[in-house]
Amino acid sequence: MKAVFKTTVNASYLDAALLVARVGVALLMFTHGIPKLGQLFSGEPIQYVDPIGLGVTLSLVLTVFAEVLCSTLLLIGFATRLAVIPLIVVMAVAFFMVHAADPINVKELAMLYLLFFIVLGVTGSGKYSVDYLISRKQA
């Protein structure tokens, strides 16, 4: 019963949990980014939101950069703390601007992603990552 209320964390469990969270959220983000990447290169007129006035094309390019490239970096755990910054921005814009007037059940997915990305930005990628390999070589 004591283990249920224990507040310390076993480091190996934490690293495994960070791996699952990082890989899981990156793969799920691809389901949003890959269709946008297809839209970007389809040759058709771009129909996308422009929530901060950058133009629809640039807004889509920046979103694809975050959701595809940064998610790829997140997946392998390379430059994790930097990679989550564009993802945090995109999810914050989605939640607070694009879906601002929508009911919570519509915008909650953006908030869940945002929370995951913030946690990964604070914790880093963990032991099972390229970041860890680089940090060991530098030490």
Rank of each mutant, 00 (worst) to 15 (best):
G121P: 09
G24E: 10
V56H: 12
L28F: 13
Q138L: 12
Q39D: 10
F5V: 11
F78T: 05
K36A: 04
P103G: 05
L74D: 03
L60S: 04
P45N: 07
E108R: 00
G55Y: 05
A21S: 14
S59H: 07
L87W: 02
G24P: 07
L74Q: 06
L69D: 06
A83L: 06
V25C: 01
L27Q: 05
M97Q: 13
A110W: 01
M111F: 15
A94F: 00
S12F: 07
G53K: 05
E108M: 08
A101T: 13
I85G: 02
V84K: 01
A83G: 11
I52Q: 01
E67T: 05
A26D: 04
A16V: 12
Y13S: 15
S12I: 05
G124P: 08
V20C: 05
L60E: 00
Q138W: 09
Y48F: 15
V122K: 07
P86Y: 02
I134M: 14
A83Y: 07
D131N: 12
F65L: 09
F96K: 03
G77K: 04
L14M: 11
I52K: 00
Y113L: 01
M97W: 09
I76K: 05
A110G: 05
A92N: 06
F78C: 08
I104F: 15
P86R: 01
S125D: 08
A79I: 08
L74K: 10
L120C: 09
V4R: 13
Y132I: 02
K36V: 01
V122W: 09
R81N: 12
Y128G: 09
F96T: 10
L120E: 10
F5S: 12
V89D: 04
L87K: 00
K2M: 11
T7H: 11
F95H: 00
G55L: 04
P86N: 05
P45L: 03
A100C: 08
P103R: 02
G24C: 10
I76W: 13
L114M: 12
P86A: 03
L133H: 06
I88W: 02
A17N: 12
L82Q: 11
V84T: 00
V122T: 12
A17G: 14
R81I: 07
F117T: 01
F30H: 08
V49T: 11
P35A: 09
Q47N: 13
D15V: 06
V9L: 15
V119S: 14
P103L: 01
P51M: 01
A17K: 06
P103T: 07
L109C: 02
V9Y: 12
N10F: 09
T72N: 03
L114T: 05
T80V: 03
L69A: 15
N105R: 04
L62Y: 02
K107E: 03
Q39R: 10
D131H: 08
G38C: 07
A94K: 00
Q47I: 13
Y113T: 02
F95W: 00
N10K: 10
C70N: 06
D15W: 07
S135P: 07
G124N: 08
S129P: 13
I88A: 03
L58P: 03
D50P: 15
N105L: 06
A101W: 02
V122I: 15
V4I: 13
F65W: 12
L87M: 09
